[in-house]
Simulated assay, not measured.
Amino acid sequence: MSNSDLVAFTGQGAAVWALVAAVFTLAGTVKGVIGLGLPTLSMALLAVWMPPAAAAALLIVPSLVTNVWQLQPWGTLSRITRRLAGMQTGIVAGTLMGAWCFGAPAGAGATMALGVSLVCYAAWGLLARPLKVPASHECWLGPLAGVLTGGITAVTGVFVLPAVVYLQSLELSRDELIQAMGLSFTTSTVALGLALAGQGGYSAPLLGVSLAMLVPAIAGMALGQWVRMRLPVPVFKRCFFTGLALLGIYMVLREIHR
């Protein structure tokens, strides 16, 4: 299904709109609870029944707005931006180069790659211990993590690996980590949007649908913040990562048996 086919498809009835909105509400809820997961979960669920490139196009506006929101407090943003400048440069370079080489994310095996990425991310979230990166290594590890993240973003539309692993290895405070993830995800969203536009995969109708999905995404974030006050976050994280693993396994098996 091409992006033009998707636009026509989304105009066929309220049921399709309700399904897409439900995905963004759920993804926003996860982000409201644990501070990440909106683009990952929305991309994973939408890609089950539409092309990965179209799913990536739909998440651009909700991802961008919610991640800019996560950049607060503004007073500390310049400091964290200077520290992570090499990583952000690497993200942009890796995303655009990956899109040029493989598509964005419409190359062969994009769905398979997305499924594998989800399984790896879930396994890390459930099993891995946080790493520690010495400050003296940030000058080269940051750009490398950025380039790798950008390449994976271009192929799959998901930009958590290895960005989140790297950021959690820097021993940032909780507030600094949330802001750093917001910065990284914002950069990745902008770079992915540029890559999609350069590949002709981001039309005005898709932009309109993406803009409309901002409402359920923000509503989901508000719900997630309410849930966070009533449910232990570690329990929620385990459920989230387990669900991602199962979804990734399903996507891989589906592609193998096609």
Rank of each mutant, 00 (worst) to 15 (best):
I34C: 00
T25A: 15
L64A: 12
P162F: 10
A57S: 06
T153D: 08
L19G: 15
A85P: 05
L64Q: 03
T76W: 05
L141Q: 09
T111D: 02
W74F: 12
A110G: 08
M112Q: 13
T153L: 06
S78W: 13
T149N: 12
H257I: 09
P232G: 04
L253E: 10
L148Y: 07
V215A: 15
P205Y: 00
I218L: 14
T76K: 15
H257D: 14
A197M: 06
Y202P: 01
I152Q: 00
P105V: 06
V190H: 00
P51F: 06
V16F: 05
A204P: 00
Y166V: 09
T153K: 03
L141E: 03
G220L: 01
S2N: 12
T242I: 13
G115N: 12
Q88K: 03
V16A: 10
L141P: 03
L196C: 02
L131D: 09
T153V: 06
A145M: 08
T76N: 13
V227R: 02
P105G: 14
T25W: 12
V20F: 13
A27K: 04
G193R: 03
F240G: 00
L38H: 04
T95P: 00
T156E: 09
I249S: 11
G248I: 08
L183Y: 08
Y121V: 14
G37K: 05
V209Q: 13
V116W: 14
K237R: 15
E255W: 08
A56F: 01
H137A: 15
G37T: 05
I218W: 13
L161W: 07
